[in-house]
Write a protein that binds this DNA or RNA. Sequence first.
DNA 1: CGGACACTTCGGCCCCCGCCGAAGCGTCCG
DNA 2: CGGACGCTTCGGCGGGGGCCGAAGTGTCCG
Lengths: 240, 240
Amino acid sequence: MLEGMTTRDPRAAGLARLAALAADETRAACLLALLDGRAWTAGELARHAGVAASTLSEHLGKLVAGGLLAEERQGRHRYVRLADARVAQLVEDLAAQVSPAAAERPRTLRQAGAGSAMARGRTCYDHLAGRLGIAVTDAFAARGLLLRDTGFALTDAGVRWFAAAGIGLDRRGRRPLARACLDWTERRPHLAGVAGAALCRHALETGWCVRIGSERAVKVTEAGERALSGLLGIDAGALR
Amino acid sequence: MLEGMTTRDPRAAGLARLAALAADETRAACLLALLDGRAWTAGELARHAGVAASTLSEHLGKLVAGGLLAEERQGRHRYVRLADARVAQLVEDLAAQVSPAAAERPRTLRQAGAGSAMARGRTCYDHLAGRLGIAVTDAFAARGLLLRDTGFALTDAGVRWFAAAGIGLDRRGRRPLARACLDWTERRPHLAGVAGAALCRHALETGWCVRIGSERAVKVTEAGERALSGLLGIDAGALR
DNA sequence: CGGACACTTCGGCCCCCGCCGAAGCGTCCG
DNA sequence: CGGACGCTTCGGCGGGGGCCGAAGTGTCCG
């Protein structure tokens, strides 16, 4: 009907193609599961999503081809993880947009227990979240290390704090040094970006926190309580 | 196959439903067009997207029902615009993720001319973009009004600057005071959020800038050059 | 070497959804 | 009042894509 089939907008086509990757419930479940920052096998994801292995294999093919996932093959396993921090942020942003109603709703006692551990402290892709993440972010703001009421950025004092604590910040690359990640249990933003990732890595490496089981939940150790109290003035009570 | 049809993750379902709204090329073209912040009629969007009016009517129904668009009916016209700044940011973020290759490619002389005017200065939803937006952001950063290398936030001096310039900042609401919007012609972030919107509104109201034609492009007036030079030290040459 | 295992490919099924034109409805204007 | 106009609803068509089980490939382990 239209004469010249006016070449359609390539930006619209690209946007649609990208969104289509997340527009399927099974693939969306994979993306959300992978938000924990770990690498999952195809089989784990298939069981998690409740579909046949063959079905999930095709989904992974699309997600990898679309650049959302990176894959690593080890023996007979296919491990996938979110391709990079940009993708993680995109999934977070989309998830944060989705109806806040769908957020909290523990179903079984066991889930409720796990949920409360998750609410205390957990990782979100590569940074700290839950009440632990909030407490750290609050402490940074209270000590003038972080601006968060007029945007979200480390102050000069904040940059010096990281140097003094011996936590290196990789300032090459396009990833922002600090950005806000909107939590979906707590309803408040917490520190993400290069600084959030560096802090989380340091906390796990030095034993301030340990992972609980194979889950995303983390627990603050006694050494961690002392360190967080000394370096940031965080009261241990705020973490319970 | 599966016994209890294990109730699927409502968060995944919500994410998939949201993404599906943008996963169609015609709807994606609408969302991108509406990024200019104006209200479009259904007919304008149908011509823009190159589909029948009946087709586009159905698309608008879904976008409105999904909360991405707000509509306003006037007589026999149906005006739609992006529902709010959150949606605008989401579309921006998705568009920024899409292959940078699909960015620049002027096709006709007329488009090239319009493109260069757009590159000089334009609005992006409700804030300034293009080289004008970059110049303003650079000036804010150079004068210590804005932190952007360690995140993105107004400094105290920045907040005072807005007060001194008589530009009100509405600090109620959840919208961040300052945030980065990634430009897709220039490849650098520029000031968005409450402060970016207030600055843009003020610039248009006081005649620092005027819109060119019915497009998103804006031009800096002579009065605007004097004001930007006096208040921010922006050299007029940077805007050409 | 043979069986268990993780994943992939293939064929087939079916549903969803985007598309259109035709017809209908409300609004505007001469 | 009547015709032009903008939008919506409806029926029907066609393509795309998610799903599965079965069969195939490659890996690990006893």
